[in-house]
Design a protein around this nucleic acid. Structure first.
Length: 463
RNA sequence: UCCUCAGUAGCUCAGUGGUAGAGCGGUCGGCUGUUAACCGAUUGGUCGUAAGUUCGAAUCUUACCUGGGGAGCCA
């Protein structure tokens, strides 16, 4: 008998087809002479309804075991549903409890649970409608990312998770060591003797694969990373994780314009891809989580992003009649409230802000002709804020070295990064995108901890 | 890390100085097409932890722990 996924049955199944399905009981409703059971195998938002008549073998005993959470295997014949709410349903001929579930202790009920509670049962929460939809969308989004870049000839590169650069960028780093913490070897001056450590010097979990991606871009022209990234910052917000996934394309022979064009095309593509592949899940989010999800997605797909310079953004903020908590002044960084005002209220769509003051951006961003600004870009989105941060990179050795020194960073440690400017240096650009923030944006989920299966945040590494 | 709100039954919450409550869930019974099924009964508690005030504390005070929202930092 043909084993089929529930998504396939609900989309394509026809009456009188014989099928076998495997999944978990989501709900059961008992009536006088028969019972309804719904099972879900994770392939689809909706459940497959199974009708069990009282003349089914061992009806009484079976029903006692068909509790929410139990794993079952059912074979039978599809039939057009007599009731409302589903097109097709399953009339079983044989049924087996693969793994039972005690209803007294199983924490999931057939009712709404708070996301806070679901986080405490991270190993089971993916069996709920919302988290199920989240992770299907997350998967589709991952797929979309690879499609987008692969179709354009970008090489997917795997940059190291362990780094000895403590100067990759901002953010606190997690240390990586094989030294015994209870008895750390010390030098004669009483400092940690890193020469005895695994790598012979301090090592950390990476906060970005960008520097290595630049090296690879200068060999393969267009590359991208897509992998985990770590930040030890004690951030307790709905949009920060200690371990998250980042997408970082890097393009040789590319300037800031090309970078912006790619970022915009990229966001449009992945939104359209997810809309096309997970329409039911997006519909669910639009109905139950955030009623603007669909509108926002269509807005992104169909409209050009607003593009303004930092200087123009400051002027717009100063011109607005809104009272901001933080000062608006050329040279100061944009605060969350400023970014949200621009994207959410003024433009009501994503906005790309470029050419920030040199003083507030990283050393590797290319110095503009005015020597006051750098070729940086931030894509600001409604609700989430900064969703993409990128720049054209400084390709001129002398300028780069000046910037490194101005940032009081050690030139020697960046010897290989400087080498890239010495041998065949070309204008190049790239950006970083927080993957979970995109999934948050697509689904309307308010807390980033609910768009990654097992979130790592301060004081939380359970599961 | 800072500000702010919260922590009471398995879940969601009410109770704001005087006997610990409801809905949902679970269990039992009823119901011929349900779909957050419905109807009836029943079960269920270290009121986050510790100390203090009081004749008496879920309720007031202090500290701590945990969580939510916001901010900073950032993607």
């Amino acid at each position: 008998m043909e084993k089929r996924r529930i998504a396939d049955i609900l989309r394509n199944g026809q009456p009188d087809e014989t099928v076998t399905v495997e999944g978990w009981v989501r709900t059961k409703r008992e009536l006088k002479g028969f019972a309804f059971m719904e099972i879900n195998d994770g392939s689809f938002l909706a459940n497959l309804q199974v009708i069990i008549n009282q003349d089914f073998p061992d009806y009484e005993a079976l029903l006692k075991q068909l509790n929410i959470g139990a794993a079952v295997k059912v074979s039978g014949v599809l039939a057009a549903s007599q009731g409302k709410g589903q097109r097709i349903e399953l009339q079983p001929e044989s049924m087996a409890i693969v793994g039972d579930s005690d209803p007294e202790t199983y924490p999931l009920q057939k009712k709404r649970h708070s996301f806070e509670f679901l986080r405490s049962i991270g190993h089971l929460r993916s069996r709920t409608n919302t988290l199920g939809a989240v992770f299907r969308v997350r998967n589709a989004c991952s797929n979309a990312i690879h499609h987008f870049f692969q179709d354009r000839g970008f090489l997917w590169i795997h940059t190291p998770l362990i780094t000895t650069n403590d100067c990759e960028g901002a953010g606190e780093l997690f240390s990586v060591t094989s030294l015994p913490l209870e008895k750390i070897p010390q030098t004669q001056t009483g400092k940690v003797d890193y020469e005895k450590d695994f790598f012979g010097k301090p090592a950390y979990l990476t906060v970005s694969g960008q520097l290595e991606a630049e090296a690879m871009a200068l060999a393969f022209s267009n590359v991208y990373t897509f992998g985990p990234t770590f930040r030890a910052e004690n951030s307790n917000t709905s949009r920060h994780l200690a371990e998250f996934w980042m997408v970082e394309p890097e393009m040789a022979f590319c300037d800031l314009q090309g970078n912006m064009d790619l970022a915009e095309a990229f966001l449009k593509f992945i939104f359209k891809y997810v809309l096309d592949t997970c329409p039911e899940d997006i519909e669910f989010f639009n109905k139950r989580i955030d009623k603007t999800v669909l509108k926002t997605a269509e807005n992104i797909i169909n409209n050009d992003f607003e593009r303004i310079t930092y200087t123009e953004a400051i002027a717009l903020l100063q011109k607005s009649d809104r009272q901001f908590t933080y000062p608006v002044e050329w040279g100061l960084d944009l605060q969350s409230e400023h970014e949200r005002y621009l994207a959410e209220e003024l433009f009501q769509k994503p906005a790309i802000v470029t050419d920030y003051p040199v003083g507030i951006k990283a050393f590797y961003m290319r110095l503009n002709e005015d020597e006051k600004t750098v070729a940086a870009m931030d894509v600001l989105s409604p609700k989430i804020g900064e969703i993409i941060g990128g720049s054209q990179r400084e390709e001129r050795l002398d300028v780069l070295e000046r910037r490194i020194q101005a940032a009081e960073m050690p030139l020697e440690e960046l010897w290989w990064y400087r080498d890239l400017r010495r041998y065949g240096s070309v204008p190049h650009a790239g950006f970083g995108l927080g993957f979970e923030r995109v999934v948050q944006f697509m689904t309307g989920m308010g807390n980033i901890r609910d768009v990654i299966p097992f979130p790592r945040t301060p004081l939380n590494a359970e599961f």
